[in-house]
Simulated assay, not measured.
Amino acid sequence: MRVIVRTLSELCITAGALIVLFVGYVLFWTGVRAEGAMNDQIGRLRAEWSAGSGRARPAARAEPPRAYEPGEPFAIMSIPRLGATWHKPVLEGTGTGTLKKGLGHYAGTARLGATGNFAVAGHRRTYGDPFKDVPRLRPGDAVVLTDGTTRYTYRIDEGPYRTVPTDVAVLDPVPRKPGYTRPGRYLTLTTCDPEWGHSHRLIVWAHLDATQPVDTGHPQAPRR
């Protein structure tokens, strides 16, 4: 009997140690790796833009915009309410691998700054916790994105709004919940709720308030 009790005790201790290690991995190590990955993506974009190459190079003549490449970064998002150092890369797609490196643009929704709904997803917890503080956002807050040539300032109208994952209408070109009734230039942010679960989603909606060439300091109202 003593052997059995001792064996069970050792197994419980081992299982407990493995659980602690797993929790440490989820809470700490995935965050460290994600922060490094996001910083790499931002550095890559800034290097491209500084060199005047790739997606950031202005076209010599009017041409159709280049398609976003799956899994590739194309913009940087900043949200002043979340801090002066809050900067996250935006990549194309919302697959698991993509969201480990930053925020993900829902394929099929509008391009950045274009008419329609530019929709972006991000983890609430793990992998750098990019949208951990989404509940702090309020109507009137700014969400700023840049693609290397233009700075787009969106202004939050509604949210955070809690819904279920099957409520795909939140990504409609004209989302009805925030009161939009006609085509416009909209932004939707989505993340999981509760913090450590995924039974629901938190949604934030915004409209394009101004655009600004990155080499000037004069914001311009978007053309209708």
Rank of each mutant, 00 (worst) to 15 (best):
M1C: 15
C12T: 03
C12W: 05
A15H: 00
A15G: 07
A17W: 04
I19T: 00
Y25K: 04
L27P: 02
F28Q: 03
V32K: 01
V32A: 03
E35F: 07
M38S: 09
N39G: 13
W49C: 08
G54D: 07
R57E: 14
R61N: 10
E72S: 10
F74E: 02
F74N: 01
A75S: 08
L82Y: 08
T85N: 14
H87I: 04
K88I: 02
P89F: 05
E92L: 07
T98I: 06
L99W: 04
K101C: 06
G102R: 01
L103F: 11
L103K: 05
T109M: 09
R111W: 09
L112T: 04
A119Y: 02
V120K: 00
A121N: 05
T126L: 08
Y127G: 09
K132T: 06
P135A: 11
R138W: 06
D141G: 03
D141T: 06
V143N: 00
D147V: 01
T150M: 12
Y152G: 03
Y154E: 06
D157S: 11
R162T: 14
V168T: 15
V174R: 02
K177V: 15
G179S: 06
P183T: 11
Y186Q: 07
L189C: 06
T190K: 04
C192R: 00
P194E: 07
E195S: 15
H198S: 15
L202I: 07
V204I: 07
D215K: 04
G217N: 10
G217D: 11
P219W: 08
P222V: 11
R223Q: 12
